[in-house]
Simulated assay, not measured.
Amino acid sequence: MAEVTPGRIHLMRVGFAALAFVIIFFHLLPLNTQVRNWAPPNLIICLAMAWSLRRPDYVPVLLLIPVLLMADLLFQRPPGLLTLLVVLGCEFLRSRSQPQHETPFVAEWLSVALVITVITLLNRLTLSVFAIPRTPLSLSGIEMFATIAAYPLVVLVSQSLLGVRKLSAAEAEILEARK
């Protein structure tokens, strides 16, 4: 029950933003200046979806938007496009999660994989419609599959090291009563 205190919730919100900026920082470091034939997973998307499914109170939309928009700007992507798609994906997943029912992890992973696939396809389609230069299809596919494959690791780290566990029915009732 101690995990639903306002102090803990605000601490985890700051922790989410800090983790996202650490991921951005290490992604921008010029460790290898040669062109790569592969794309790393988008860990910010994994983190946003894992935390949205497990503890939606830790990642409200008003926190997701500036963090994802900053990532768009720093990664020199079209500002707001991937932000919009990820926020819509997280909200879709959040609406389908039920704190009082335990969902098997495989079903959760499949739903996240489906959402990541739709996000990737809609992103490419939108970039094509507006004739915006985009990465090759192979790199987008590699990034999508790497992101889907990294999701269980992000969930494991979030759950074991950071304590981001699913809400129990009692905790969900306490949060609903505060709204």
Rank of each mutant, 00 (worst) to 15 (best):
G15P: 06
F16Y: 01
F16E: 02
A17D: 06
L19G: 11
A20G: 01
F21H: 11
F21V: 13
V22N: 01
V22C: 01
I24Y: 03
F26V: 08
L28K: 14
L29G: 03
P30A: 00
P30Q: 08
P30W: 05
L31M: 15
N32T: 12
Q34N: 02
V35A: 11
V35E: 13
V35M: 12
N37S: 15
W38H: 15
W38L: 15
P41H: 00
N42L: 03
I44D: 02
I45E: 06
A48V: 07
M49L: 13
A50H: 09
W51F: 02
W51V: 11
W51H: 00
S52E: 00
L53G: 00
L53C: 04
R55S: 01
P56Q: 03
P56G: 08
P56W: 03
V59E: 00
L63G: 12
L63A: 03
L64A: 01
V67A: 10
L68S: 00
L68Y: 03
M70Y: 04
A71I: 04
D72W: 09
D72G: 04
D72E: 02
Q76P: 09
P79C: 13
G80L: 15
L81E: 10
L81T: 12
L81K: 13
L82E: 14
L85T: 04
L85W: 04
L85M: 02
L85G: 04
V86T: 05
V86N: 02
V87H: 12
V87K: 04
V87Q: 06
V87R: 06
L88G: 03
G89Y: 03
C90Q: 06
L93R: 09
L93T: 09
R94L: 03
R94D: 00
S95K: 15
R96M: 10
S97R: 13
S97Q: 07
Q98G: 02
P99M: 01
P99R: 07
Q100V: 15
E102W: 12
T103F: 08
T103V: 10
F105Q: 07
V106L: 14
V106S: 06
A107E: 11
W109E: 05
L110S: 07
L110N: 08
S111E: 15
S111K: 15
A113Q: 07
A113C: 11
L114Y: 06
V115C: 04
V115R: 02
I116G: 09
T117H: 07
V118A: 01
V118F: 04
V118G: 00
T120G: 07
T120M: 06
L121A: 09
R124V: 00
T126A: 11
S128P: 09
S128C: 10
S128V: 05
S128W: 12
V129W: 06
V129L: 07
F130D: 01
L137I: 11
S138M: 10
S140Q: 01
M144V: 05
F145M: 14
F145G: 09
